[in-house]
């Protein structure tokens, strides 16, 4: 009985510890420090996504791409991350990768209007001028 209780204390402590880390990350995010939040609690894709979106705004495309890739490794169905990743690839001239990301998004969500719009743009319907719809974090 006592052993069971000790096991439960340990299990609950681990879970409570994760919850405390999450709380600390949320506090960092409250202070608009998304990278800090992502460093404290890297398991939540949300922080990486916010940092990626922030990198896009600052035109730091290589870092943004790696952030979105990281988000997709944790949340493979994140259509927002796929759209933004395609946008980043398109901005850096990698149209093949951009198209691949959008087709992946379309497979997940066939009637997504933002994906379809970006795919049309990418396929040259706007004379090579890219105006991607970005998904806010």
């Amino acid at each position: 009985m006592k052993n069971l209780l000790i096991v439960m204390v340990v299990v609950q402590s681990l879970w409570a510890g994760a919850a405390v880390l999450h709380l600390a990350a949320e506090w960092r995010l409250n202070d608009l420090d998304a990278p800090g939040a992502a460093a404290i609690y890297p398991w939540d894709y949300k922080y990486g996504y916010i940092v990626g979106a922030s990198n896009v705004l600052h035109k730091n495309f290589p870092d943004a791409a790696s952030r979105f890739e990281s988000v997709l490794s944790r949340a493979p169905r994140h259509v927002g991350a796929l759209i933004n990743l395609a946008g980043v690839y398109a901005q850096t001239g990698d149209k093949v990768s951009a198209q691949r990301a959008l087709i992946r998004a379309l497979a997940l969500s066939p009637s997504d209007p933002k994906v379809m719009r970006n795919l049309k743009i990418l396929r040259g319907k706007m004379a090579g001028k890219y105006e991607f719809v970005m998904v806010p974090s």
Binding site: K2, V9, Q12, G17, A18, A19, L23
Partner: peptide
């Protein structure tokens, strides 16, 4: 406005420690 999970988790740990103290 805060995530409440941390507090609930801490209380769950406290509950188990309390039960352990009672058992021993």
């Amino acid at each position: 406005d805060l995530p409440k999970t941390a507090l609930v988790g801490a209380l769950a740990v406290a509950a188990w420690i309390h039960l352990y103290i009672r058992a021993s």
